[in-house]
Design a protein around this nucleic acid. Structure first.
Lengths: 192, 192
DNA sequence: TGTACATCAGTGAACGCGCGTTCACTGATGTAC
DNA sequence: TGTACATCAGTGAACGCGCGTTCACTGATGTAC
C-alpha cells in the first residue's frame, strides 16, 4: 500500500516533512534568526524533543530547509528551461523563486546557519549549480558566463528584497528584472 | 580642544563607536544571528545596560552597524571612482568591501535584523545607492544599467561567500569578478 | 570664580522567559522464528 | 499464524543558561547665576 521510501511514516505519518514546512512558515514570519526548534515543533503539533530527534539540532533543521530549497529551485529552473527554451526565462524563474519563497532563499544563502559542508547540502546545491553554470566539463568561459547570469539575477533579487530598487522603475519585479538582465551580453550559443 | 560633535564623550570617551566596533567583531565571529547586547558590551568592557542605554535594543545596535557599513562602502566606492575613473573598478571595490567586511555586508543586506525604515538608515543607504545608480534625476535607462552593475557584483560577492563559485576558476575573487563583470554590456558614457 | 543643581553616562542586582539538552519512559511498528 | 523481542518515534518533566528588560543608584560633566 504505502510506497517504500527512506522516510518511513510511523506515528505522525511524515513528521520530518511536516517539520520542514513548519520551519519555512516560522522563517517567513520571523526570519531564520528567530526560528527555534521549540516553535517549529509547536507549529507541527509535536513536542520539541521530536524535532530534536529528527534533526539533531537547529542547524540540522536549517540544513534540511536549505536542501529542500535547492531542490525546489532546481525543479523550477528545469521547468522554465524545458517550457520556454530561453536562458533569460531561467533567470526570471530564479527571481520569481527568490521573491515567492523568501524563507528558502534566506536560509540557502546565509552561510553559517547550517553546516554547508554536509554531503546532502552539497549535492542539492550542485544540482542547482549545474543548471545555472553547466556541468563540470563546461569550459571556463561557459562557466563564467553562467556565473555572471546567476550573479545578476541573484543580486537583483536581493536588492529588491532589501528595498534597494527605486520605486520609479515600477512595481513588477519580474518586468524590471527583464530590463536589468538585458544588460548582460549573452553568447549566441545561449540565446533562446 | 575636543571637536564639537553629536557624540559627546563622557566617561568612556566614545562608547557608542566602541560598541559598534565590538558588534562588528562579534558578528564576524558568530554571525549577526548570534550577536547579543550582553556579549557586545562585554567586548567593549562595559555593562550590558550601557549598550541598551545607547541603542535601545539589539535592533538599534544593528541599525547602527548597517549605517556605518553603508558609510564605509560609500567612501570606498567614491575613492575607487576618484582614483581610477573606471566604472568597472567601482564594482571591484564593491566586491572587495563585501569580502573584507563580511559583518557589515551581512547586516546591511539582511532585512529584518533592524528597522530599515529608520531615517538614518535610509539616508546612509541612499548615499551608497546614488554612487551606484545615479541620483534621482537619472534617466530610467541609466538607473537600470546601474542596478544591473550593482546586481552583478553583489550577486557575485554573495555566491563567493556561500561557496558557489567553482574552484577551477581560481582562488582570487577579484580576478574572477573582473572576468564575470566583463559580461556586462557597458554603455559608452560609463566606460573608463 | 564659586556654588548649586540638572543632566548625562554609566553600574549592579534582580527578574522572568524561551531556549537547547538530557533522560527515563511509552506506545506503535517491524522482524525473527 | 502467533508470539517474543528489537527498534523506531515519539512524550513529558527537569535542568541550567544566556538573554533582554527593569529599576534604583552613583559618579562625572555641563550650566545657570
Amino acid at each position: 500500500m504505502r510506497p517504500k521510501s527512506t522516510i518511513r511514516p510511523y506515528h505522525h505519518g511524515d513528521l520530518r516533512t511536516a517539520l520542514v514546512a513548519a520551519a519555512v512558515d516560522a522563517i517567513e514570519e520571523g526570519g531564520a534568526t528567530a526560528m527555534s526548534l521549540r516553535d517549529v515543533a509547536r507549529r507541527a503539533g509535536v513536542t520539541h524533543t521530536a524535532a530534536a530527534y529528527h534533526f539533531g539540532d537547529k542547524a540540522g533543521l536549517l540544513a534540511a530547509v536549505a536542501i529542500e530549497g535547492y531542490r525546489q529551485l532546481a525543479a523550477d529552473l528545469l521547468a522554465a528551461r524545458e517550457q520556454q527554451r530561453s536562458f533569460l526565462e531561467m533567470g526570471i524563474a530564479y527571481v520569481r523563486f527568490a521573491l515567492s519563497q523568501p524563507a528558502y532563499f534566506e536560509v540557502m544563502y546565509h552561510p553559517g546557519l547550517y553546516d554547508a559542508s554536509d554531503p546532502a547540502v552539497r549535492d542539492a546545491r550542485a544540482e542547482t549549480a549545474a543548471l545555472l553554470y553547466g556541468s563540470r566539463d563546461a569550459t571556463n568561459e561557459q562557466t563564467l558566463f553562467g556565473i555572471a547570469a546567476w550573479s545578476i539575477v541573484h543580486g537583483f533579487a536581493t536588492l529588491w528584497r532589501t528595498g534597494n530598487i527605486p520605486a520609479k522603475l515600477g512595481k513588477d519585479p519580474e518586468e524590471i528584472a527583464r530590463a536589468v538582465a538585458s544588460h548582460l551580453r549573452v553568447p549566441r550559443s545561449r540565446r533562446g
